[in-house]
Amino acid sequence: MIQPRLSLKRNSEVSRTDPEPTSEASKEPAVESSAPEERDRARPAQTGPGHRVSVSDLHAYYGATEAVKGVSIDFPPREVTAIIGPSGCGKSTMVRCINRMHEEIPHARAEGRIMLDDNDLYAHGVDVTSVRRLIGMVFQKPNPFPTMSIFDNVASGLRLTGNRGDNLRERVHRSLRAVGLWGEVKNRLDSPGVGLSGGQQQRLCIARTIAVEPEVILMDEPCSALDPVATLKVEELIDELKEQYTIVIVTHNMQQAARVADSTVFMLDGHLIEHAPTKELFTNPKDERTERYVTGKFG
């Protein structure tokens, strides 16, 4: 029952039967008001309520080692949620559980429940590829396919999932425009993707991710291999993308979390310590450990 809905659900068709998104939509303004005011960019009218990811009591293991120890988080639709914490605190692992990439690692497994709206991503019989089509991921190091041209890289997700459609070219161009790469590469779409600079490669990878039109985008330290100028571009892009996507970003860089995130999660040693609107978490943390971390006293 669940599987076809999981593999069919698309942004445009979501308005219909689900009771949940409507209730989420009514909740949204409350979250909104506590978001940092420096977001002066006006949001366009949204076409739908977006999609919510709810993690409850997630435990993730590498063999016998427990890396995530019972985390529950709600990622509100069309917001950027940043996850910060010292190395090894389980933030990447937690995020990789959301699109079921965690289980790709030998001996790794996850327990708990992760819902995309009212679909259980870990329900029996769910095709993992359908989960990953709905929940895209951008990695730490830009990883364009070395044998493919710029165009083919962006088209790869569509072609290799058998969704190429008739308007492949148009969708590729649109994705490249969306990441602000169009002007830089429109005259060399056939040259290799790996010939671009690091920052351009990362934006190419983001274009590749959004070309398959996911609902949620996970970013695992997407700027840690980039210089400050390229980082700024990617951050601006994140700001634009959240108009359409629910975004989760893992970052080591607290300034980055402060710049891009509506709310921020602090994790420590596999536990969620605090989840609050970004400004609040950085200026007025409730937990003493959060305070010590954001003020640089450890980690």
């Binding site: 990439m101 590829t129 396919f145 790869s156 290799l160 999932t161 590749r208």
Partner: peptide, 29 residues
């Protein structure tokens, strides 16, 4: 062949065999 390429393909929702056929093998040809 860097694992990051396999991850990139798999994270796009590409089936494993197709990832091997279209990403890994051409890279290692």
């Amino acid at each position: 062949v860097p694992n990051s390429l396999r991850e990139a393909a798999v994270a796009l929702g590409v089936a494993r065999w197709r990832m091997v056929l279209r990403v890994v093998l051409p890279t290692a040809a």
